[in-house]
Structures are given as structure tokens and as C-alpha cells.
Simulated scan of single mutants.
Amino acid sequence: MPRPRAILVVSAHWETPDLRVTANPQPQTWHDFYGFPTALYEVQYPAAGSPELAQRVVDLLAADQLPATLDPERPLDHGAWVPLSLMYPAADIPVVQLSLPSRVGPRLQDRVGKALRQLREEGFLLIGSGSITHNLGELDWRAGPDVVEPWAQAFRDWMVEKLQANDDEALFDYRRRAPSAARNHPSDEHLLPLYFARGAGGVPMHIEHAGFTLGALGMDIYRFG
């Protein structure tokens, strides 16, 4: 994959009633979690922001009748900096975040992704950061790497089947159609970034990594387009 000019991330950890875009030229690293080892809270990801990309995002969304506002104060949440610290550990590529209006559902995220698709042609990387399954209350913290709950595997496999078939109708209605949907996602926010990435990338869908941890937490990575 060529080195991107800058990176746009939709994270499950920035929920808002409307669309907002980070515009801080030097965003802070936000440790927006609790109960983990001290060393994790000492990690910094000092990537610059990109007010230029932020304004481009606002303009492209406005062209599709999707109003968005700039947020000059928002730091990078862990949905952005944790995966980026593995992908680009030098933190030398500017990062912008786009918020997640989670109560609107998958169709909006698909539309947002499509509205921003041309950014890929301009050299920007678009990432949806969430999880294919996400029910922290059902995790087994003693489970080995080969232990997978059947209800989590069934949901993941259904999603992959519909993604590979490009089945919009089923994917947009996943909460009624997918097996154990509410058990895997008690709320939508960790699955919705997938719809943004799919909208932005289009077809085909590629599985870059597949697996589970703690019995029921899906760690899949997908690439679109």
C-alpha cells in the first residue's frame, strides 16, 4: 500500500448527534479507557492533524447534503491511535477523525463513505475502526486463542458472506437478519465504522486478517476496493 498523504479515521469511540471533523493541527493522545496497566496510559501518538484534509472532508460532505462542522479541540481517541500505532508507529502521517452519528444507523455511514470515496484517489487513506463483534460483557478473559463462542463465529461468518455478496439489503438490516446480532452488538457503534469503510472503498472486499480473542471479540481486518 502506498504511503498516504494523510489518514481519515471513523472510530467507534467518537459518537455525536451530527457529523464533526477534527481540525486540531496537533491533536493530543486521549487515553479514553480505564482499568488497564499503567504503561498503556504512557503511550503517546504525536501525529499531526491536517486542517486541509478536515476542510476537504467538510466540503465533500456538504456537496452531498451532509452538513459537518470542524472541531478544533477534539483529541485522538484510542479507536484511532491504537491501530495507527501498529500501522505507522513513527506517527509521521497526519491524522483526522470524523465522528460517528451512531443513532442514525448503517445507511448514513454508507452514504458518508461514498461521499468521501474520491479522497482515496487523492492519496488519502480512509479507515473505519470498530470490531466485527463487540460485547465486552460476554468476553472470557481466560480463553485461549483457539476458543471461539459459536454465536460470535456465526455472526462474523454471516457478515462476511453478505459483504462478499455485496448484499446491501441484508447488511443494512443486520440487526433483524444476522444470527445473534444483539448479543454480538448490544449497540451499533462498533459495527458502524465497517459501513463507512465499505462505502468509501466499494468492491471487492478482501479479508486481510481473521481471528478472535477472549472467546468472542472479533479481530478481523477488511479492505475494500
Rank of each mutant, 00 (worst) to 15 (best):
Ser102Gln: 07
Ile221Cys: 12
Glu73Thr: 15
Leu76Arg: 11
Leu136Glu: 07
His190Asp: 02
Glu189Gln: 08
Arg183Tyr: 05
Leu98Ile: 10
Met1Tyr: 05
Gln118Thr: 11
Leu100Ser: 01
Arg176Gln: 14
Met219Ser: 06
Phe36Glu: 10
Ser129Pro: 01
Met159Gly: 03
Asp110Phe: 10
Asp77Met: 05
Ala6Glu: 01
Gly49Leu: 03
Ala39Glu: 13
Pro25Ala: 03
Gly199Lys: 04
Ser187Trp: 02
Arg183Cys: 07
Trp14Leu: 10
Ala115Arg: 03
Arg111Trp: 01
Arg156Leu: 04
Trp14Ala: 11
Gln118Val: 15
Leu136Asn: 00
Asp220Gly: 12
Gln55Cys: 12
Gln28Trp: 10
Asp77Leu: 06
Pro4Ser: 05
Arg175Leu: 11
Glu42Lys: 12
Trp151Ser: 06
Ser85Ala: 12
Asp92Asn: 01
Gly202Lys: 03
Gln44Asp: 10
Arg175Asn: 09
Gly215Met: 01
Ala197Cys: 09
Gly105Cys: 03
Asp167Ala: 15
Gly215Cys: 13
Gln65Tyr: 14
Met87Asp: 06
Thr22His: 04
Arg183Lys: 15
Asp140Arg: 12
Asp18Thr: 15
His190Gln: 05
Glu73Ile: 02
Gly123Trp: 00
Ala165Phe: 13
Val43Cys: 07
Tyr174Pro: 06
Gly218Ile: 06
Leu125Ala: 14
Ile7Thr: 02
Gly105Val: 10
Gly49Ser: 10
Asp146Ile: 14
Arg117Ala: 15
Val148Gln: 15
Ile207Ser: 09
Leu163Pro: 07
Ala54Ser: 14
Ser180Ala: 15
Arg5Ile: 03
Pro46Phe: 04
Val160Asn: 00
Gln28Pro: 02
Ser180Ile: 12
Leu40Asp: 12
Met1Asp: 11
Val148Asp: 06
Leu125Pro: 02
Pro2Leu: 09
Leu136Val: 14
Arg3Gly: 01
Phe124Arg: 01
Asp173Arg: 13
Met219Pro: 00
Asp140His: 03
Pro204Leu: 07
Leu136Pro: 02
Ala152Thr: 03
Asn166Trp: 07
Ala200Phe: 03
Ala91Lys: 04
Gln109Ser: 09
Leu86Met: 15
Met205Asp: 01
Arg20Met: 14
Glu42Val: 05
Lys162Trp: 15
Leu171Gln: 04
Phe36Lys: 09
His190Met: 04
Glu122Trp: 07
Pro101Cys: 01
His78Met: 07
Asn184Met: 13
Pro72Ala: 13
Met205Pro: 01
His13Asp: 07
Asp71Arg: 02
Glu169Cys: 03
Ala62Leu: 09
Ala152Ser: 10
Pro67Gln: 12
Ile221Gln: 08
Arg156Trp: 01
Pro72Lys: 13
Phe212Trp: 12
Ala182Trp: 15
Glu138Arg: 14
Ala182Phe: 13
Gln55Phe: 00
Leu191Glu: 04
Arg103Gly: 13
His134Asp: 02
Gly144Thr: 09
Glu149Met: 15
Val21Thr: 02
Gly202Val: 08
Ser180Lys: 07
Ala39Asn: 11
Pro27Val: 13
Ala62Tyr: 04
His13Gln: 10
Asn135His: 08
Asp59Asn: 06
Leu194Cys: 11
